[in-house]
């Protein structure tokens, strides 16, 4: 009883699948008090699909949908007023609490690949390592990019709806620990109009990665971030393009100025960085510059 009353007062935990042209609106929506952007589908009960998701990302969308614990609901957002969307999410949550059934899985619960009986233990790869049994990539030893010793390499594809990446961007990364030793772009970010480059949105993205969700909400509400050690927490020289690093770009956004960027090579910028540094670099690139760079890499 108390639990249900409290649960009804909780901000709606929503996992956002953001499509082309909807990034700015979606990010502003989550600065509201009654909405909370879940960092993983496991923490959400509503899937918010903002805009038209391109066909090539529809399977990924279905997978994200199935990762949300039942009871779950999907809300489509085609550009209505944020108040109406917040009301529709609240209504969907109320229905879920009332009926408790929600939507069924969209994909069959089966492995993406068949068992491939290669190698001495039948899993592919060499010895006890590597291969992709049932489509699950396993780690395989390879040279460490820092000291040349042999260390496990794990390759995974991340995106297009991973909350720490720009919407639409799918990266195939090879990790050793959390060091990126190889990265390629599977699909570039979805196209976004210039409103996604607004200084407050850019600053808020960096603040969220620094663990300052409330400061990010304050910035989007037009207030000062009210956070300590923002500049100092960003390593000096990280993500340097055209002579400005992340610190420089963040300083410009804090003054409400845009931070225009020339062309850059995205995979080169990310290779060799630790995962958290790479995510900071990506968050510090205005969407328009990032989309240009990703498309240039794809074309090359």
């Amino acid at each position: 009883m108390i639990r249900d009353t409290l649960a009804a007062r909780a901000p709606a935990a929503v996992f956002a699948a953001i499509g082309p042209g909807r990034q700015a609106d979606a990010e502003r929506l989550f600065a509201r008090r009654d909405m909370r952007r879940a960092s993983t589908p496991r923490d959400a009960s509503v899937l918010l699909v903002a805009g038209d998701i391109p066909a090539e990302a529809s399977e990924a969308l279905a997978r994200v949908h199935d990762q949300i614990p039942p009871p779950r609901a999907t809300v489509q957002w085609q550009g209505e007023d944020p108040d109406r969307i917040a009301a529709r999410v609240a209504e969907a949550l109320k229905d879920l609490r009332g009926t408790g059934t929600g939507e069924a899985d969209r994909l069959p619960d089966e492995p993406p690949n068949e068992w491939k009986g290669i190698g001495p233990h039948g899993q592919g790869g060499k010895g006890m390592m590597g291969g992709t049994p049932y489509g699950r990539p396993m780690a395989m030893t390879g040279p460490d990019i820092r000291d040349g010793l042999q260390l496990d390499r794990y390759t995974a594809r991340i995106g297009p709806f991973a909350p720490m990446l720009p919407p639409g961007l799918t990266l195939e990364v090879t990790l050793q620990g959390d060091v990126i030793c190889d990265v390629s772009i599977d699909s570039p970010p979805f196209a976004q109009p210039a409103d996604a480059d607004a200084p407050d949105l850019c600053l808020a993205r960096v603040l969220r990665l620094l663990g300052l969700d409330r400061a990010a909400d304050r910035v989007l509400g037009g207030k000062r971030p009210g956070a300590l050690w923002v500049r100092g927490a960003i390593p000096r020289g990280l993500g340097r393009i055209d002579g400005t690093d992340i610190r420089g770009r963040v300083a410009a956004w804090r003054k409400g100025e845009a931070a225009p960027l020339g062309p850059f090579d995205l995979p080169q910028l990310l290779t060799g960085a630790e995962w958290s540094e790479a995510m900071l670099i990506l968050a510090s690139l205005p969407p328009s510059a990032l989309i240009r760079a990703a498309r240039a890499t794809e074309a090359a």
Partner: peptide, 17 residues
């Protein structure tokens, strides 16, 4: 975080592989 804690309680637990 109190309402949020109650909110997660009401959902099912999913098992990973």
């Amino acid at each position: 975080a109190l309402p949020e804690l109650a909110g997660t309680m009401t959902r099912q637990r999913i098992e990973t592989e």
